[in-house]
Design a protein around this nucleic acid. Structure first.
Lengths: 236, 236
DNA sequence: CGCTACCTTGACGCGAATCAAGCGGCGTGG
DNA sequence: CCACGCCGCTTGATTCGCGTCAAGGTAGCG
């Protein structure tokens, strides 16, 4: 399944500062290092599986992960995306429920796995960490509810534009400052937008012809950001 | 705006046991009583408003509240529903953000307002309460993400059926054991489903003709629950 | 008793899903 | 090293769900 690698020191983890573990002090971080293990997940591998029980918390050290679920007729729905420094699996762990979505590596990723019991012990003495997690889940909720409004009220063209902006907001640009720093195939974009692959392709081509974006294979460059934002109907 | 009423004792509040305040002990509850006020909101009145800053936490003592937001072309989207015993406004309060949706009384409701500062003080010394809130937000997130999948992948007929089941799950039945214990107008049902009022009406009539439900005005009786569940495509 | 707000039904047209076919790139095996 | 096959991308044609517009009905309230 996943390959174990050297266990990096949390104290020196440069992605940590972006996650909610930045509230821990030095001694807590050293303790954390002792209660985690690190593993590599190759593209397409499952970090955890829908319906599974959580045994720990996952911290993305390097790479990109999608959180998605399989719908009624087998169609995938991408719910969230995680990048380096993000923590995943906290919702089910905190709620003591089974995962309601799977976590799948979009590209080769290294992920630290923090032991469940140690995590709960840490939470008990660390109100601040719990508070940060609550805030994080609250933010996820806000984003999910905005997605609901979008699915309810926007047409596919607007939602495809929105998806590109979402990808850009999540993963930023490649060094060239224009190319969205993630490669999803057309089906995966469709699985986030909630539409068919064909419709996604049609609107991407439209944006291409309208010089809003520039497509070369799976690489998408945003040429005209303000036009894209307007297309997504995010103005006013 | 809202009318003040006698301040009921939290200790004796029989709705409290269903909310996350059930982790508080006797002395904490007495303290809570001193830091809250109670108000009546008439049908249609705003408990809090989208874009507003949270000054406290709201505890629904009696009545029914909808949490909704106004979309891009002015169309409303109902995101959550609250009933007696439910707490609302925790997400924005915890995250220290503006509300991203409004809370509007669906019927005349009495709501206790807990002072923000007192609430945060209580949280600091009360890990358990914070933990319960995190779980609650996590559950909201799960429900929201299920709604996303539904909006993405189901047709309107299935979603209208699902909405009825959601209303039943939230508010239960009236004493007759069949009538859904909430009256929304057709537009409000549509605003939850993410469709037009006319489509909602059409499918409700269909269900009526198919003897799945029985409609008399705004009252909806569920005649054939298993058929309704099957119509919502929630099987297996 | 009349007005207003809500419900209902029908007709129409558009947006997007589906079906179908062809293309291109890449990896594999001969 | 080239040919073949497969998978993902793309585009066109067709179908159909559902949103929109329009008109009429009903019930509750002042």
């Amino acid at each position: 399944m996943s390959k174990s690698i050297d266990n990096p020191e949390c104290l020196f983890c440069n992605t940590r500062m972006h996650s909610f573990f930045n509230v821990l002090d030095k001694s807590q971080l050293q303790l954390l290092t002792q209660h985690k293990s690190c593993a590599i997940f190759k593209k397409g591998q499952y970090v955890f599986n829908e319906q599974g029980l959580p045994h720990g918390l996952f911290c993305v050290n390097n790479g990109k992960i999608k959180l998605s679920t399989i719908g009624f007729d087998g169609k995938e729905q991408i719910l969230r995306l995680a990048k380096s420094g993000d923590v995943i699996g906290y919702r089910a762990l905190i709620s003591n429920q089974r995962y309601h979505c799977s976590a799948i590596a979009i590209e080769d990723s290294s992920v630290c796995i923090i032991d469940k019991n140690f995590f709960f012990q840490t939470l008990e003495n660390n109100n601040k960490l719990l508070f940060e997690i609550a805030k994080k889940i609250g933010n996820d909720l806000k984003i999910a509810e905005e997605h609901i409004v979008s699915l309810s009220q926007k047409n596919v063209r607007e939602r495809v534009a929105e998806a590109l902006l979402f990808l850009k907001a999540t993963y930023g640009f490649a060094p060239d400052g224009q190319t969205i720093n993630i490669t999803l195939n057309r089906e995966e974009i469709a699985d986030y937008v909630g539409t068919s692959t064909e419709s996604t392709i049609r609107f991407l081509s439209e944006f291409n012809h309208e010089k809003i974006i520039e497509i070369s294979g799976k690489k998408i460059k945003i040429i005209n950001l303000s036009k894209l934002t307007k297309t997504a109907n995010l103005m006013d």
